[in-house]
């Protein structure tokens, strides 16, 4: 670390004078949008799968759907996200004859599908944590399983799993650092490019780590605030 001052100078030159900051901002934008869109898709898919998996299974149709959902979850939990990214971008898309797909969009979809598998398990736990009497109350009023689920059980389940869901979002933010495998520009790629200019990685990587930490801190605070506002209904005093 003898000439650290010099290395900082080099970084600043690249970052500000050579316009490296533009790349970082673009990368940050991609990182956030992949994580946010991934989370939204994940919550939608996860909720649907969880609802299917807790549906009473007397009849054939729910059983088949349940089987499909299990397969889906097993596949996405059983393979690393990098493999899923590579498979979709370099195997599935060419097979489907799609050319020049935007790698950021591909990343969004894969992140969504992947987190859907994890969120479905989180959501299932959340749904099971809600008093079964809530479902009974709704069904006894003549509301269908789906309506009671959507209006009564899932809102309470989401409240219960919000901290875990925040965790999932943080994981997604950090996992975006693998999207450079399919040549998408994210936060990691941006700083890596800056470092490559003169093969000095120490400062860019340190700055990158700080930005990741700041992002995660902001999200944690946001989740805590949301939790507090959602807890209104069960404060007893």
């Amino acid at each position: 670390m003898d000439n650290f001052g010099y290395k900082v100078e080099l970084f600043l030159k690249d970052f500000i004078d050579a316009g490296g900051y533009r790349k970082v901002i673009a990368g940050l934008g991609n990182t956030l949008s992949i994580a946010v869109v991934g989370l939204i898709i994940g919550i939608l898919i996860g909720t649907i799968i969880a609802a299917v998996r807790v549906f009473p299974k007397y009849k054939l149709m729910p059983r088949i759907l349940n089987g499909i959902c299990s397969l889906y979850v097993e596949f996405f939990r059983g393979t690393p996200m990098v493999v899923q990214l590579l498979l979709s971008y370099y195997v599935l898309l060419p097979l489907l004859g799609v050319r020049g797909a935007d790698s950021v969009v591909v990343a969004m979809v894969v992140f969504g599908l992947n987190s859907g598998a994890y969120i479905s398990e989180i959501m299932r736990g959340g749904i099971l944590s809600v008093d079964p009497g809530q479902m009974e109350g709704g069904r006894a009023m003549g509301l269908s399983f789906g309506t009671t689920m959507m209006k009564i059980v899932i809102p309470q389940a989401i409240k219960n799993i919000l901290p875990t869901l925040g965790n999932e979002f943080i994981t997604l933010i950090k996992e975006t650092s693998i999207v450079s495998f399919i040549a998408a520009l994210d936060l990691y790629k941006a700083f890596n490019d800056i470092g490559t200019n003169n093969y000095e990685f120490i400062v860019p990587y340190l700055v990158m780590a700080v930005i990741y930490i700041l992002l995660v801190l902001i999200i944690s605070i946001g989740v805590r605030l949301m939790e507090r506002s959602l807890r209104k209904g069960d404060r007893s005093m």
Binding site: D131, G133, Q134, G137, G138, A140, I152, P155, K159, G233
Partner: peptide, 8 residues
Amino acid sequence: HFNLFNNK
């Protein structure tokens, strides 16, 4: 156990 909807 009443089964009122807790979120309403």
